[in-house]
Design a protein around this nucleic acid. Structure first.
Lengths: 146, 146
DNA sequence: TTTGAATAGTTGTTTAACTAACTATATGCC
DNA sequence: GGCATATAGTTAGTTAAACAACTATTCAAA
């Protein structure tokens, strides 16, 4: 019996992700207060494009852990907001490369500062060792299930 | 500078909740394979009713960490599935008490076994100490933000 | 006792997730 | 070359979340 020592019945929030939901809500609130007209999901796509522009939709699926229809619609909405543009690949015409607009590039600094601020709010009073240990556990959980 | 020792830039999944999303997806898959016609969100409501039947919608909001419109619609759908019934409170006519049907009571054992199985899959190879520490960190995060 | 605030729940709108079914393009094998 | 298969992306339908605006009921204070 490998994992039977932890207290069952108290792990409800493990499944429902109360903590990450709370973080996302707090970040969304900060976006709204700053009049950044962005959803967290849209931010999560921009986050990866800011690091590496011109990814394909499939690459964004992998990076954001979303399926293809979700990315299709997120990119639809980001295009409507004029934050990204689909550019058909020359070498493989099945592929759209998603490129940031100048307007989206201007959002990076502010949005990332708010994200960092939110993480600091969330992790206040937690030691770096515990944070890293918790991160490792969550990564292991993810790896166990993929 | 309290929390500046951890590696920033690696905490994306903290915000996006990759681990809990993965757990929820795995549990949903198990429900589907078992022909349990239940969403994870519906399960999360039933979870609390199985522990304590007849809660008000507001109490379900608090327990499941959802807002009132979300609970209204979840209860709507659970009623359509004939798994719960709204019963108007006699003493306070603003309140609906949500009661399980016999059919819903019959689901408890199977659904909870699948949830436990999913947690065991997720936490395989993680020591009970690390699980509890991680749980405490997540609880602290939640408390920090509420 | 009435009026104003608080509480419980509902409804409408937008955004997103998941599944399944679909089109178009590319690739590999005969 | 031609055909099967895989890959990239879209569309449709259902469920759910967030927010704002709304109704009904309760409660407390003047």
């Amino acid at each position: 019996m490998p994992n039977n020592q932890f207290k069952k019945g108290e792990l409800y929030s493990f499944i429902t992700g109360k903590a990450s939901t709370a973080i996302a809500r707090r970040l969304q609130k900060k976006f709204n207060q700053a009049n950044l007209n962005l959803t967290i999901e849209q931010w999560s796509v921009l986050y990866h494009l800011w690091k590496d522009d011109g990814r394909s939709q499939q690459e964004l699926c992998n990076a954001t852990f979303r399926d293809k229809p979700s990315i299709t619609r997120l990119v639809d909405n980001l295009e409507k907001l004029q934050l990204v543009k689909r550019v058909a690949s020359e070498s493989d015409r099945r592929i759209n490369r998603i490129h940031l607009t100048r307007q989206a590039m201007k959002l990076q600094e502010q949005a990332m500062a708010l994200a960092e601020e939110t993480l600091n709010d969330a992790l206040e009073g937690v030691s770096p060792e515990h944070i890293n240990l918790c991160k490792d556990v969550l990564q292991r959980v993810y790896d166990n299930l993929k």
